[in-house]
Amino acid sequence: MDSPLRLISTNPLDRLARTIEALLVVAAAPLSVAELAQATDDDSERVEMALALLSERYCEGRSGIVLERVAGGFAFRASRDAAEACARLFERPVERGLSQAALETLAIIAYLGPCSRPEIAKIRGVAADSAVASLVERGLVAEAGRERGVGGAVRYRTTPLFERVFGLESLAALPRLDDLAEDAEGLRDRLLEVAEARAS
């Protein structure tokens, strides 16, 4: 039987896992495998093995801290059991009061980005200036260069914070647009059906 005092193992993978654990506690944003490998001066494969060890240790129901794969990296978060207590003490400034206009603008940037304000306005039919400004202020979107040509409009893309707040591993985790709504042809056909029904 193992002694209850034997907390620190001498297994090299375990030692690597402890170092990664420490790095993740200090980090304020998710760390990628490459960043962890560089910081620990170890190779990516072993880092991934150590992360698998940590994922078992830090999971829902077993620990107050949960290791999650989010925004292209790994990060610690509070377990869902502790959510109520967290809500009593902390604020969620990033998503508080996110308007419908801001959500639509965010969706357009997430799916079509990098894209400019005129492009967003073209899809939404109204100016997107204040919605974009609010998203930039929250850190959910950031500037990503300009459109080609002199005086090209600033283009925007979503930030890793967006993926983290929405709990996405990456932008690829967004559902396909085709699954969300009917296509243009379907809409047009339905409009024409209405016209025929009224004409007859």
Binding site: Q100, L103, E104, L106, A107, I108, A110, Y111, K122, I123, R124, G125, L174, P175, L177, L180, A181, E182, D183, A184, G186, L187, R188
Partner: peptide
């Protein structure tokens, strides 16, 4: 465009 906007609304 209407369809595109509708899709983005759904995405939102």
């Amino acid at each position: 465009r209407l369809a595109e906007y509708r899709r983005m609304k759904e995405a939102a």
